[in-house]
Design a protein around this nucleic acid. Structure first.
Lengths: 334, 334
DNA sequence: TTGTACGCGTTATCAT
DNA sequence: ATGATAACGCGTACAA
């Protein structure tokens, strides 16, 4: 590996000083002689000089990089949002480093610390909600931070999140319109107290009440992904099994589909299904899946915008209390 | 935003010099007095000191970071491989920065340059194959580089790639065993000369011959994703339309599924389908999809291993000429 | 218009 | 056992 060319090499080659080259690189041409400019330009080309971003970052105390920590990259939602964040950042010449906490607060903490050590200019976190003290520390030191998908109680950070209550309500309403009465919901584990899951369950219960149906505890389950098959078995072999089920995210939806396939359950005749999160194969599946889509692109973009505005100390027009609107996409599974 | 604590602050606070703190941080305790050690430890805790990785990288000329540039993040293959790379890197305390070239050589070039400027220690690239001179420049300067998925003609870089010919042969053989004779293949655009696509087509043709069937040009198509619906229409409205089709990657498979659904074509009765790449929903789809899986986890891990060994100038036991074995997963779509 | 000198936070070398 | 000092490559006052 050849030793890299530095700004000094360019300066020597062009017979000027480092500072002049630096001026050139930063496009301060105000008082620069045409011939100097050309000599520098040529020297850069000939030597194949590339500025060293590490050195620049050290000096400028800014890396033009933001960190993104997702709670769980396996969710389609995460990848879609990341793409949107990346798109936006690209436009503003920011780079992103994506990390996957795997729903593990310990990993999350490790990544936060790593990214801070790397001096990223700000952080977008899909919080596991398991590192409240650390989040608070960041807030206290005014570190630029935006939460996505989930808020964390008592931690004052702007959050880009779905109107989860509404998402559930849309689903229940659709079920009811289609004539279903015995409606169930299945979410991923509630142990961690992750806000969206709780909100989706609460929204579900409210909606059930609003439609004058009864809430049956056996119809409302929060389970780890590995437990879902068992949970469905229990739920669907009750005396009065549900006729319809709301899968509260794409991972649960996959489990439900696995179950109905394994047990040859007809959808929607024997079990109607709605999934929150619009999965890639929803429209080609047989039957096509009715889903509740999140405005992932908008949410990602706004998170990035919010953060970058913070970095630049701009006033933001984005209202971090606003809840993003879910959309029901009616297809054939309900 | 509070000003960050530096090593000097710690040194002052502990009444020692910067160098001693540095020793401590780098675990050179050989000659360090117990009390000094404790004082430093305490100072670090009290001040909440975090080392600055940017400064360290500048000094050490190493960032413990590798760049990963995928040709197209939309492929399930890409995301699976990235996860494997990340897992491996984590173990060795390397970080990764992932970029998506979107099948665009211009973007790819931009990302390569950005990552070099950021002084990443090495690069894993799923090459678009559109930047041969640049790849060659990296090779010439002995820059640590590994290709994934695709080789590039005349550029001598270790490549982790599938045995694409075998993948097609497995598919054709399975079709034939199931009694299909008129077999087609559809790949993404061949314009760029991307090796795996060509190899899959070649493998397909070879296999057709080996089974004493005739190769019909109308049954062999390479199209842009947007053109696939049209292409399928033409292909399937021929006098003798194919009875079976090999979708050469997951994006094409989606298009095929979209088409058969839109036209109520029965799978596999009217059209048998095999897809290369094991998509997430293959087993829950109706009918469950027969796929050819790549050993994505192994491939990602080995790419990372190969690169990290290069960085450390180790001899590698990984044979970069080796082709990774595809596996046919027989389900119901053929 | 261009050059000199210093600082960013860390580590390595060499003294002490 | 610990400290002083010089790099690393770049940016920027300030001087010339």
């Amino acid at each position: 590996m050849k030793t890299r060319i530095t700004i000094s090499d360019v300066a020597n080659h062009a017979n000027v000083s480092k500072s002049t080259v630096s001026q050139y690189l930063n496009k301060r041409f105000d008082y620069m002689g045409e011939s100097t400019k050309n000599r520098i330009e040529e020297a850069i080309k000939e030597l194949g000089y590339q500025p060293n971003a590490v050195a620049r970052s050290l000096k400028q105390k800014s890396t033009s990089t933001i960190g993104v920590i997702v709670a769980n990259i396996l969710h389609a939602f995460s990848t879609q949002v990341i793409r949107a964040i990346e798109d936006y950042c690209n436009e503003y010449d920011f780079h992103i480093i994506v990390c996957n906490a795997d729903d593990d607060p310990v990993k999350e903490r490790k990544y936060i610390e790593m990214l801070l050590a790397k001096q990223v200019d700000g952080l977008i976190i899909f919080p596991t909600t398991g590192n409240v003290e650390l989040y608070q520390k960041l807030v206290d030191s005014d570190y630029p931070l935006v939460f996505l998908d989930r808020n964390v109680e008592n931690v004052d950070v702007p959050v880009i999140q779905l109107d989860n209550v509404k998402a559930s309500k849309l689903a229940v309403q659709h079920f009811v319109e289609k004539g279903y009465q015995r409606i169930a919901i299945m979410t991923t584990s509630l142990e961690l107290g992750v806000a969206p899951r709780i909100e989706r369950i609460n929204g579900f219960k409210e909606a059930i009440k609003e439609h004058s149906l009864v809430i049956r505890d056996e119809y409302v389950k929060g389970l780890k992904v590995e437990e879902v098959q068992d949970g469905l078995k229990k739920m669907l072999s009750m005396d009065e099994p549900p006729e319809a089920i709301l899968a509260s995210n794409d991972l649960i939806l996959m489990e439900v589909l696995k179950y109905v396939k394994a047990h040859s359950i007809k959808v929607p005749e024997e079990l109607a299904i709605i999934g929150i999160d619009d999965v890639s194969f929803a429209s080609v599946y047989n039957p096509a899946l009715t889903t509740i889509a999140q405005p992932t692109f908008v949410m990602g973009t706004q998170a990035a915008e919010l953060l970058i505005e913070k970095l630049q100390n701009k006033e933001s027009k984005i209202d971090p209390v606003y809840r993003y609107e879910p959309t029901l996409i009616s297809r054939d599974s309900c």
